[in-house]
Design a protein around this nucleic acid. Sequence first.
DNA 1: CTTAAAATATACAAAACAAGTATATTTTAA
DNA 2: TTAAAATATACTTGTTTTGTATATTTTAAG
Lengths: 147, 147
Amino acid sequence: MYLTQEIDYAMRIVFCLAKAERRMDAASISTEMCVSLRFALKIMGKLAGAGLINSYKGIKGGYELACPPDQITLRQVMEAVEGRGYAFSRCLCEGSDCNRGMSGCCVFQQLWQGITDEVNQQLESVTFAQMLEREKQRREELSAGAI
Amino acid sequence: MYLTQEIDYAMRIVFCLAKAERRMDAASISTEMCVSLRFALKIMGKLAGAGLINSYKGIKGGYELACPPDQITLRQVMEAVEGRGYAFSRCLCEGSDCNRGMSGCCVFQQLWQGITDEVNQQLESVTFAQMLEREKQRREELSAGAI
DNA sequence: CTTAAAATATACAAAACAAGTATATTTTAA
DNA sequence: TTAAAATATACTTGTTTTGTATATTTTAAG
């Protein structure tokens, strides 16, 4: 029903790298994001495999964004981790053939597809550059409100 | 990540009762919807508990909608089964306190909230009367196309 | 007033999925 | 040559979903 932790972590990891603007090793990322090192490594493997981040082995190794943050969307991260975009219902996935009781005409499927499309559009329309900007604004609002 | 089967079944069960316009026993519903009898009973217990359907014990017992289908929304079914509306991310649920690495200012949470609100609004805006109407239209389209 | 067909309550079990961990290996800057 | 890093692969644990079983209660009909 919910986004998995893995996707949530992946988003935060990319955000972290976008913010750092420099190469970071897995241990630092894992500490900053409060994700176990091993799990972070696993996720970063997927992100690197999808070409969103670059990885470097050896001493001075680590990870960095593969391109500027205004060229990475939330949807790309979702796909990197999940292997596809968001889907509201299982029945929208390949080979599901669910027309359970609907005699080959399922009006729920249509509806779920609409919701799915909308969410994916949202995820696609937001880049990590925008997320950084949002955070900056939000911090300013908070400090202004705190006076 | 996906809607659970339980919610999917619940939607279909309510749709089935809306379509039937009469009292049906659990066995018939389970057969029509291709859901195991036991699981269907469990789900209908929740739907009855939430006041969406009425249940009748004994011979000639069964289930029927508690009110006209134009007064039942998809969101109500979601809440009956899940105990709350849709939430895109766990971090939006009570007592989650996730500001992991975001120093008390999580811009993802804002975003997930926006998506959540949108989906809930969708679910709230559609009644089962509308779903019946949709199905009718869709069938007409299909048979027209098949000539 | 008995009976059989129905729902209900409660608990249990199995399966699927998510989350996290461990070990051995490879790469590379110093 | 060495130590710090990533990588590959497999394994374990925990949680959630899904489904099942048993005993009980209710009720229309004969």
